[in-house]
Simulated assay, not measured.
Amino acid sequence: MTVEIELRDARVRYGPLEALHGIALAVPAGALTVLTGRNGSGRTSVLRAIAGTVPLSAGRVVWRGTDVTGLPAHERARRGLCFVPDLRAVYDTLTVAENLGLAAPEGDFERVLEGFPALRPLLARRAGTLSGGEQRMLAVSRALLSPARVVLVDEPAQGLSPSVAARTYELLCALDAAVVVAEQRLPPGLPHSGRPVVVHELRRGSVVFSGEPAELPTPE
């Protein structure tokens, strides 16, 4: 598979703590890449390093053969990268419709309302008044509306019912983009629609497994 974006020997530090220890991780084009691991394993730091919201202390970020390590997050977004963090992913003071309008300025967000019908009666509500699950649906909708080539989503199913979580993954897998998600464990029911799925398990800032879902070792 063609590599869309990758980390090469990437290290990330938060003060004296090193969160990523020289990680090499490739994101294939047209695939769903799943980062799994417990809290503190480094999966969120991988997303942030790719998105450019945290700097590397060593290593490189390479996007389609171009070194973008020094490129700030907003420039990566302009080039076609969308990052949905696990926290503060919506604009609390704006309505649901206004949040969606930021991703679809022409107001064409009917397809996400078809995917998440629970958002339709909430269009006039301020995002800050929504439940955690409703905010997650709204945040993921931003990625679904984006024309991005790379979509990064931290815990897309957080706070969602199993049926809505499954629908969320169906919608993400239908995107014409390289999609990377971070979850504590492998979501059930993958893959969707025949899309290739690559799993990387992280532990204490290092990749301890890379492969297909069926090859993932059974937890002890």
Rank of each mutant, 00 (worst) to 15 (best):
A29L: 10
L202N: 10
A165M: 05
T66S: 13
G189P: 03
E6W: 05
R111H: 13
L160W: 04
L94M: 14
A10M: 01
A157G: 12
R120M: 14
L47N: 06
A166W: 11
A89R: 06
D154V: 06
I50T: 00
I50D: 00
P85F: 10
L56Y: 09
S146Q: 00
P117Y: 15
P117M: 15
M137R: 06
V62S: 03
A97P: 09
V181H: 08
C82F: 12
P85H: 11
G30V: 01
P105I: 12
V153K: 04
N39F: 01
N39G: 02
L171D: 05
L144Y: 09
S57D: 06
V90I: 14
G205R: 09
V62P: 08
A104W: 08
G107V: 14
P196E: 11
L87W: 11
V12I: 03
A104Q: 09
G15Q: 09
H74S: 14
R43V: 05
A127W: 00
P121E: 14
P219T: 13
A29N: 06
E155V: 03
T66L: 13
P219R: 00
D92I: 12
R38V: 13
L175K: 11
P188L: 10
I50N: 07
T218L: 09
F116A: 09
G80V: 10
R185S: 13
P55V: 09
L25E: 00
V84N: 01
F209A: 04
S161A: 15
R48M: 08
A24S: 14
W63Y: 08
A127G: 02
E134A: 07
G189M: 02
R167Q: 11
A139D: 00
D108H: 15
G133N: 02
Q158R: 13
R76T: 15
Q158K: 11
R142S: 08
P55F: 03
E6D: 02
E106L: 13
L17W: 12
L171H: 09
V164M: 15
L172V: 06
V34H: 05
H74C: 12
L71W: 14
L71M: 15
G15P: 12
L202K: 08
E114H: 15
L47H: 04
L47P: 02
D67T: 06
E4H: 00
M1H: 14
A89F: 07
F116Y: 11
R13M: 12
H200E: 01
L71T: 13
G211T: 10
G42R: 04
W63G: 05
G52I: 09
P156F: 02
T66H: 13
S41D: 01
L175C: 08
G128C: 04
L87G: 13
L216T: 06
L130F: 03
G132M: 04
R126H: 07
P217G: 10
V96I: 07
V151Y: 06
E110Y: 15
G65L: 03
T44I: 00
A97T: 12
L32P: 06
G59I: 01
R48N: 03
Q184T: 08
A157M: 06
G52L: 03
V34N: 04
D176T: 10
P105T: 13
H21G: 07
L130D: 04
